[in-house]
Write a protein that binds this DNA or RNA. Structure first.
Lengths: 197, 197
DNA sequence: TCCTTAACCTACCAATCGGTAAGTTGTCAA
DNA sequence: TTGACAACTTACCGATTGGTAGGTTAAGGA
């Protein structure tokens, strides 16, 4: 890896996998953007699948670190969760590559034989579930009720993030800008009304 | 189209496009499942893009019809919306192909030059927005507030639907069954608390 | 100076992709 | 009986895919 660092390489791979999907993004296209040949990429990562795995692992590490770093800041559990979900939504809207790739992974991982991709979200989700359980009124709630409520909130965010280009095409840039401005307030409303007693 | 009807043909195409994506599903693979050669498909539809377009159009027609047929049943607007979203969630969980394909379309339609796919959801979304506006307390709400709230609810459903295989991989079939059972109740909770005064 | 190693390269491979060209087959109306 | 047409078929095509084999080049330690 001469000119670029490993991080820059994974940046490009992550972006192309996010934009085109695993099958749509060729290693030749990724290498082209880096000014390399595809054989250079294969030299470093062995196969396309392993390169993709490296991208996934970096994402899972980032997601987990980002969660623990924002959650330990406040004392009120609900405020911790609200702060995390809102900053997650904002940063995902700014750089949607991660959300896009994870959404594609949800759609594809039934087909592709990946042992790495299926389980990497588990501890992340478990941490969030534990967080919800600390909120007054949720301590004795059934595990599945907590999980479903949480997952619906995550869905509300991620669906909006990956819909951005399509909404732009339907309603135009100006309207979508209005949508984004309204997002945080309405999401907080739903969050409060569904999680607070 | 000898043995199979046009509907059966589109069923197979829809399922494969949903499972593998536009680039991942080859016309040869679709034809194989129908007992045909890929040239037979090209004979009928001209190109892969047009076949995909036919699948998309059928979905948009179904979605629209399904909306108007369930919405005109009750008099209470909120109950209409609740009934529609809950039956949509249930039927999507039973046959997730449509949701999967639409989710892929959200991710891909920035790249593929399709004029057909970008706008077909507009009237569907507009109908739902109008429905929300009839709910007491929402009549004078800003358009973007209504839209965002609605879109977050749609996201909660569709994200859970396309996550089904992955959740199965993480938590096992038994837990996911519990999740599905809990889904309707928790979704109703969020729906009521976010849309009713 | 020599040797190893990492970081690349060119050249090639079989498989698969979407699509074209040119038939073949069966049905049905005139 | 014939002719037209739809529904397919086999036989290709060039382009692209992921991956292999076998170099070349430069840096750095012994």
């Amino acid at each position: 890896m001469a000119g670029q660092t490993r991080e820059q390489l994974l940046d490009v791979a992550e972006r192309l996998f996010a934009e085109r999907g695993f099958y749509g993004a060729s290693i030749a296209a990724i290498a082209d953007e880096l000014g390399l040949t595809k054989q250079a990429l294969l030299h470093h990562y062995g196969s396309k699948e392993k390169l993709y795995g490296a991208v996934l692992q970096r994402i899972s590490e980032y997601v987990e670190e980002h969660l623990v770093s924002t959650v330990t800041s406040s004392s009120d559990t609900f405020q911790q969760l609200e702060a995390y979900l809102l900053t997650m939504a904002t940063s995902s809207l700014e750089s949607p590559a991660r959300s896009q790739l994870l959404m594609r992974e949800l759609l594809d991982n039934k087909r592709r034989a990946d042992t790495v991709g299926t389980w990497y979200l588990r501890s992340y989700l478990d941490t969030l579930v534990e967080l919800v359980r600390k909120i007054p009124g949720w301590t004795d709630a059934p595990q599945e009720d907590i999980f479903i409520t949480l997952y619906q909130l995550l869905g509300a965010i991620n669906y909006f993030v990956v819909s951005q280009p399509t909404l732009q095409g339907i309603y135009g840039q100006k309207s979508v800008h209005q949508f984004r401005l309204a997002f945080a307030a309405q999401f907080s409303r739903i969050l409060r009304s569904s999680l607070q007693v």
